[in-house]
């Protein structure tokens, strides 16, 4: 038995596949690929498959990973080829590797937020710059207080590690690094929603998770 880390992209319509649905879809894909899975030895044997960090519903990603325990002596390349052809539409296997880091060490995520608006992009760029250059950008985040869910005010500026604003044709692209992981997590849609709210014109956005980072900004692999 050994553990492999399967890397995949979740783009297009598959961004509407929730985390729980993705776990089922991937387990089925692995079964279709006839990969010799290692099963737990308890009363109710099941395969051991875990995901590094859940992705919010509606977000795309270039850097999803799934760990699974396998039997036999297939190489990573063989596993890659077996999996590639059995993926559901919208999910593309990019690599199969030996795990390097513990998913618990993930601290940050890098995201691209693409804004589409019908009217000029220049005003939007300057609005975003103005918002991110101020000292305070208070938004409400759904948090837990004991067993209850409560809305908490947080200052987004304190959490944004890095950002870059650019234009891409008639779209505005905001690249941002935010806390992601089991201890602190700030969903980039909080920022995108706030921008959407403050902008006078109708604007839609989409978010792509590009990579996950460790505390020392090293890439999670």
């Amino acid at each position: 038995m050994r553990c492999v880390r399967v890397w995949f992209k979740k783009m297009g319509m598959s961004r509407y596949v929730s985390h729980l649905d993705l776990m089922r879809a991937m387990t089925r894909a692995v079964r279709r690929a006839k990969i010799p899975l290692w099963y737990t030895e308890g009363f109710n044997p099941h395969p051991y498959i875990t995901f590094a960090l859940p992705l919010s519903l509606g977000m795309e990603s270039l850097c999803e990973s799934m760990d699974m325990r396998i039997e036999g002596d297939s190489t990573n390349e063989e596993i890659f080829l077996m999996l590639k052809s059995s993926m559901p539409p919208g999910i593309e296997i990019t690599d199969v590797k030996d795990p390097v880091h513990d998913p618990k060490k993930i601290t940050f995520g890098e995201f691209d937020i693409f804004f589409d608006c019908e009217k000029g992009t220049d005003e939007l760029v300057s609005l975003i710059a103005e918002m991110l250059n101020s000292d305070e950008l208070i938004v409400q985040k759904l948090g837990k207080k004991g067993r209850h869910k409560v809305l908490k005010d947080i200052n987004l500026i304190e959490f944004i590690k890095e950002y870059k604003i650019g234009k891409l044709g008639d779209r505005v692209k905001l690249t941002v690094i935010l806390p992601a992981g089991s201890t602190t997590n700030v969903n980039p849609s909080l920022l995108a929603d706030e921008i959407q709210k403050r902008y006078a014109e109708a604007v839609t956005y989409s978010i792509v998770r590009k990579q996950l980072l460790l505390e020392n900004a090293e890439r999670f692999e």
């Binding site: 319509m13 509407y16 929730s18 649905d21 509606g58 559901p88 539409p89 839609t204």
Partner: peptide
């Protein structure tokens, strides 16, 4: 493939995966 118009409303509804199509097989 679903239209751009439909895509715009998907983030607003529960379980949008029901309205996208594109399932395996």
């Amino acid at each position: 493939m679903i239209s751009k118009e439909v895509e715009k409303i998907l983030p607003l509804v529960q379980k949008p995966g029901r309205y996208t199509g594109g399932e395996l097989n």
